[in-house]
Design a protein around this nucleic acid. Structure first.
Lengths: 206, 206
DNA sequence: TGATCACCTGTACCGCAAGTGCAGTCTTCG
DNA sequence: CGAAGACTGCACTTGCGGTACAGGTGATCA
């Protein structure tokens, strides 16, 4: 029984892949309903307009991203009790995960929303903003735990470093897509890892 | 005589600000011609379709970006003869420049193209790819010059570090826009600078 | 002077996409 | 049986991208 998947979920799947490859505006409802084998009325039964589709899509996307991050850093912590080392392991796992995607990372909906502000309503934009802030807090918590044991070099603000994690992923995705080299994203995460390592390794004032 | 600006340039200006705030698909030709006070025929006289507008826009954008980078790193080199120090000065200047933009960075057309692949034709996508590769070579050249004097820590590939410069800017822009905090971009460039500094500072094997 | 050209205007039209509205249908479940 | 959930079918509106083509106007140049 593969047919447990509801039409609603099917619409979300089709819309997501369309939006990530073509953008929100270029993914037509006609195209989505053709692939989902439903009618236009069927579409509007589930979503009152395209913005509601965007909202549902973003929410679903953020939920799975959060689950992935939870999983990676929980497993990393199981492999090493030390906060710094487990964080570095987590970043390595993240990098490998990104490198293993056959066609490269499909793109981040957060960036899609960020780059088409006015196409989305307040709700969608707020949801997007909240997601970034949640990532900021997540990574900041981990960094503070690290900093309590390994004092970081002066002059760096931990919140900025926390943002750097998200920023590296977003930037890496843009670069990978623009240049057509999926490996770029993985490389950038490795470089980020190298920075974190340097940042928290004891300064040796020879 | 302010009227030296041709209608063509005016169209490009209006289209650019529209695209950066709403995305390519959401910026209608009707809207552009209304603001430019020309007719639809006038628009299609200059650009045979929307894709040609995109191509011209991207080309113009890339030219000004290149001019800015040239200017910043040339001035930085005049301030300090050493490649590492002048590079660090250049990054600082770049960061300050980004922080000084009153409404934050308006967004990068390269990312817009990267995130709406299928909306643009081959020409536009190739142009976009070339731009990233040019940036890669530019920064790689500077990094090699630095590495010749200050041997970098093992395990880092200079090409990846070169990509990191572009990646940081792209990621920083996405973050700034998504969260509504213009300063994030400037902060991320400062952090990148801090990494470059650590990377090329002599390792002290105490 | 008048011919040419760049740079437009005006009008009419096409097809597609995003909706709106609403009546009807099939299925499932209490 | 009846009600609710998950749709279908169809007709219609608006806006957008684009085409086609017939002009118009001011500057430049032989």
């Amino acid at each position: 029984m593969e047919k447990v998947k509801s039409k609603r979920e099917l619409i979300l799947d089709i819309a997501e892949s369309g939006i990530l490859s073509k953008g929100f505006g270029a993914t037509s409802i006609d195209e989505i309903i053709a692939e989902a084998e439903i009618t236009k009325s069927g579409f509007f039964y589930h979503f009152k307009d395209k913005n509601e589709l965007a909202r549902a899509l973003l929410q679903r996307y953020l939920d799975t991203e959060e689950a992935i991050l939870d999983d990676v850093f929980t497993r990393a912590r199981e492999l090493h009790g030390d906060p710094l080392h487990s964080f570095l392991i987590g970043l390595k796992m993240l990098s490998e995960m990104m490198g293993d995607l056959p066609n490269g990372h499909p793109g981040c909906l957060v960036a899609t929303v960020a780059y088409s502000e006015r196409m989305f309503d307040r709700d969608v934009r707020t949801l997007n903003r909240q997601a970034i802030l949640i990532w900021r807090e997540r990574f900041l918590g981990m960094l503070q735990e690290i900093a309590a044991i390994y004092p970081p070099r002066d002059g760096v603000d931990l919140r900025t470093v926390a943002d750097m994690i998200s920023s590296t992923v977003e930037g890496g995705i843009v670069m990978s897509r623009a240049v057509g080299e999926p490996k770029v994203l993985a490389e950038q995460i490795v470089l980020l890892r190298s920075y974190i390592k340097l940042l928290f390794s004891p300064a040796n004032p020879c």
